[in-house]
Computed example of a mutant assay.
Amino acid sequence: MSLLARRATAELVGTAFLVIAVVGSGIMASRLSPNDTGLALLENSVATGAALVALIVALQPVSASFNPVVTLVEKGLGLVDWRTAGALIVAQFVGGLLGTVVANLMFGLDAVALSSHTRMGPGLWLGEVVATVGLLLVVFGTVRSGRADRVAFAVGGYIAAAYWFTSSTSFANPAVTLARTITNTFAGIAPASAPWFVVAQLVGGALGFLLVRFLYPLVASHSSEASGTAAADRKVIS
């Protein structure tokens, strides 16, 4: 199997499991804590952050971005070519949709049910910009400063926290956003709301890219895993 096929498969599987964690824990949380939205969100955020850490640790040696915005920034930094970026992004979107279908079926729901959860407004869009900039800073700041072995814990911790400090509960991922349109559950987002979230994420991606380039113009060469900075960067997640 070619390296690109292995990387695309890792992105598909990783994004699928990430979405299963997001949607599945959202369903479980709403059932366990039906009268306490705050507690349900806590349960959802902890499960998502923990799953992210595990998935990144497991798949980072192959590919573990799980996020089209992260992959686009990797392309902007010269870590992947357009062919690779395109294949990984397609895999991320397909994996996200499959993850939602699996999560819905696990909990006895229809495989596909469009969400009725409207998430609209400038405050929420700003929240997505902030969430995405922060995510990119955590991912690439950790890696480009020579600490790629810690990126899983940095990202998992950031996402768990960003559920709480951003108005949008930090989607910060176009593939996950699209996937969450086909579940009419706690974690869902109405299809009409999703494009605005994606636009905000892309804006955040552009700002995050510029910030990373400014703060970390060079990749550290003193890390414990420094067998090639491009290779280390290329293995990073979101």
Rank of each mutant, 00 (worst) to 15 (best):
L210E: 10
T84N: 04
L72S: 08
G157E: 11
I56L: 10
S65Y: 09
V19I: 14
V212A: 04
F214C: 03
S223M: 08
F107Q: 07
L105Q: 07
G205Q: 00
E43I: 15
F17T: 14
V176Q: 02
I56D: 03
V22I: 15
V94H: 12
T71L: 12
T169M: 14
V69R: 00
T185W: 03
R6M: 11
V143W: 02
F186D: 05
P68C: 13
V139P: 06
Y158Q: 07
D110L: 13
F171Q: 02
R213Q: 13
V112M: 11
S170I: 00
R7Y: 00
V101H: 08
V23S: 01
E74F: 14
L109R: 15
A190Y: 12
G108K: 01
F165G: 10
N173G: 09
A230Y: 06
T84G: 09
V155Y: 05
R180D: 15
L18M: 08
G146I: 13
I182T: 10
G14F: 05
T132E: 01
G146E: 03
L210F: 10
L32Q: 09
S63F: 06
Q92W: 11
L39V: 15
A226K: 11
L202R: 01
W164T: 01
A220G: 00
A21W: 07
V23P: 04
L52C: 02
A91N: 02
E43K: 05
A16H: 05
H117M: 12
V198N: 10
F171M: 15
N67Q: 06
R144D: 13
V129E: 03
D233P: 05
G121S: 06
T132V: 11
N173D: 11
T71R: 07
R31N: 14
E128L: 14
V219Y: 03
F140V: 12
A40F: 12
Y163F: 14
V219H: 02
V102Q: 02
I159P: 08
A187N: 07
V199W: 01
A230G: 07
V101S: 01
A64N: 03
F17Q: 05
N104V: 14
E225F: 11
V80R: 04
L114A: 01
V80M: 05
T37S: 12
S115E: 10
V139M: 03
T118E: 15
K75F: 15
F153W: 10
S115Y: 14
D233T: 09
G141E: 05
V46M: 13
R150C: 11
L3Y: 05
G156A: 01
Y158H: 13
T183G: 06
A190V: 14
A154R: 04
G38D: 12
L178V: 15
L55R: 00
V129L: 14
A161G: 12
S63G: 02
A91I: 13
G127F: 12
P174V: 10
V73S: 01
V62M: 09
A51Q: 00
L114D: 02
S238V: 08
S33W: 06
A16P: 08
A232F: 10
D149L: 12
W125Q: 08
E43A: 09
